[in-house]
Design a protein around this nucleic acid. Structure first.
Lengths: 214, 214
DNA sequence: TGTACATCAGTGAACGCGCGTTCACTGATGTAC
DNA sequence: TGTACATCAGTGAACGCGCGTTCACTGATGTAC
């Protein structure tokens, strides 16, 4: 007689942490197949639970997907933060330039190494979205847009970016890097050999830097 | 007794041009809902024909989708060509610069005004894709990549772009413009007000031009 | 410390949906003689 | 010019799939007394 614990597979009747388990399963699904692969039944299957158990923790599939999207965006931001922190250049201008490039590299690296997550990060269902200070990365930490803004603020503060050119600089840098990431992962540049990809990335970063700072 | 023609809806038993009708229906589906909305049964429904009639003209759904994707890409190229041809500047350098900007504007305008088609253009199923001379736009006309290359060649010929900077210039310009289009249509910049979008586009084009030509 | 009971977190079966695809078929067309 | 017949382009029914979601339920937990 199994009382608390099923003696065969050792899973208690109450999962204990099903919400987390569903999010983890959803993240794995997203990793492999992008946002469309985040399927309620697959997540519950993976968690070893019946289909509708998920409804104890999420109102519907969209709510689960939303959480997964936020986590993916957060992962992207974390890689960017990590790469920024690795920059050791003491000179304010060169340091700010290196940090800007580091965020760009991180962005593209993330997209290439985790294309499913990258696509999912931007697959927030329905209306919402819209980036800006405090939006887009859930509750904790800075989102990619904010990290980019920080770099550009640094550049401005260090005197490498005039006030005039500071305006709208986010969208220019972001577009270039996002476009490369999209072309490489979902677009016609899928499967570009490593060396070509590196050359493309270097050129994009150079054009952005030269274009912004004149 | 209807012999050749059904007297009620005047549709002959043989459609006459079902292939074209299915492609047209598919294009409308793509326009409204992107590549995922290109659904065999919906296309046949729209064409007023039974589900499986489509199999007389396409091996499977993917084959239809592929045709639709090519047509969408062709539409994008046509708008770019049209906008390039509108440039009247006689000076070779200024003319080439204006044509480059015109292709970028066309690219973003297409994405914003026809987001379903834009997404579909890049949703070629499975492996394939990869741009380059002669690829990506089906059989006729120049594809977007080639049009961009033409602009850059002009710029180089006119002396505004050094040979060194000519290298990899396509990917830089393309990434920036594609990224803006993606952010505006599928990403966090969805629904950006017109004025802000115009400012963003202007900045992106300026950064690309300055970044490329130094 | 023991027990009744509300509440929480699961189960299992079922519904309805729309899809791609296949099957055996029939009506229409065009061509050889 | 007429006719037999191969071929082409449709039809209608069905299969199997996986999905999101709902229903009535039961097992486990925790709390008031």
């Amino acid at each position: 007689m199994a009382l608390m614990v099923d003696t065969v597979n050792m899973r208690p009747y109450h999962h204990g942490n099903l919400r987390e388990a569903l999010v983890d399963a959803g993240l794995e699904l997203a990793r492999q197949g992008g946002p469309d692969a985040v399927v309620l039944r697959a997540a519950t299957r993976e968690a070893g639970v019946s289909h509708n158990a998920a409804y104890r923790h999420f109102a519907d599939r969209d709510q689960l997907l939303r959480v997964i999207c936020e986590r993916c965006m957060r992962e992207l931001a974390l890689l960017m933060e990590h790469r920024m922190a690795e920059v050791r250049e003491p000179d304010p201008v060169a340091g700010a330039q290196e940090r800007l490039a580091a965020t760009g590299r991180a962005y593209v690296d993330f997209a290439v190494s985790e294309p499913g997550w990258f696509r999912t990060a931007f697959a927030v269902p329905a209306t919402v979205a819209h980036f800006g200070p405090g939006e887009g990365a859930g509750d904790s930490g800075r989102n990619p847009y904010e990290l980019l803004s920080d770099c550009l603020d640094d550049l401005h503060r260090a005197g490498a970016l005039t006030a005039e050119r500071r305006a709208n600089a986010e969208v220019a840098a972001w577009s270039a890097v996002h476009g490369l990431a999209a072309l490489l992962t979902e677009g016609p540049l899928r499967g570009l050999p490593d060396a070509d990809r590196e050359a493309a990335l270097a050129t994009v970063l150079r054009v952005v830097a030269d274009g912004l700072m004149g």
